[in-house]
Amino acid sequence: MVNRRALFIYAAMLTLLFLAFLFSLTYSLNGISFVDALNALFNVGDENIITIIKLIRFKRIIMVCVTGAVLGGSGCVFQAILKNPLADPFTLGISGGAILGASIAFISGLAATVSFFTPLFAFAGAVLSVFTVYVFGFKGKFNSNIMILSGVVVSYAFSSLVMLMFSLSQSTGVQQSFMWLMGNFSTFDERLAPFVIIVAAVGLTILFLSGNIIDGISLGREKAETLGNNVEKNIKIVFFITSLIIAAVVSVCGVIGFVGLMIPHIMRIFVGSKAMLLIPASVIGGALFLLLCDTLSKIIFAPVVIPAGIITSVLGGAFFIFLLVKAKKSGV
């Protein structure tokens, strides 16, 4: 039974995404129309335009969309398996590890030598925090509260280490770390892009296909097991795939908050809670939202590009204030 309403929403959002994509390709380039931009992608037209659009902007925009897609989708999955509406991709400590790794790369000066070190260290850091949370969280039977608690602890522990490094270090690496912290699409290593895109695409597809299994986890252990599901195994697999795709984008682009938290909530209003509907909606929604934020981040203080994470945080904060006001009004 195909849900027509969901399909309509996907189509609408993909259209918006396409428009945002074209806008992002052409903003502040006077006299360039959407058609010119599309042509440029296929090497038709003025050489300079082609360079800007195809080589520079296009790659960045793709990365932004992929990151937004991963954040939206993984936020949705974590909210489901942790049964917590406040969960987001970073609840389980990945951000702490990634920031620690990246900071070490910047402050030690390694990042300055070979730009490859930053994403590598960030990924290693993310993996470390995932592993730590896994060990604590999966001791004995899976308990979502214990898992969340371990994530919080790991996050704080690693953040403290980072703060310690910041306070002790004189190097310019500190400033660089800050800029990296909040999400940075200007200077990612392009060679990593195909890898990230493939990991993200494969991971998100598997998660989407596992939507019904993910929903089944919310039934509670007794019910899920008597329905023939191996709850522990399912949660572990979902957890690993989700952590992997988050680590992949975070190590290249930094930590961008609120997308993974807000987008599932917003999309839930449109398509409902069923994972197979909500995951793709969050993926498209995340890509769209982050693309808009990224474009805004380049326009607002032009020519300075502020980290996209700042825009998402501001909009995220506004969103929550709106939710609170709405909740208060309905007497919650």
Partner: peptide, 8 residues
Amino acid sequence: SDMSMPFS
């Protein structure tokens, strides 16, 4: 039974 998720 946990019926807190808004499934139909």
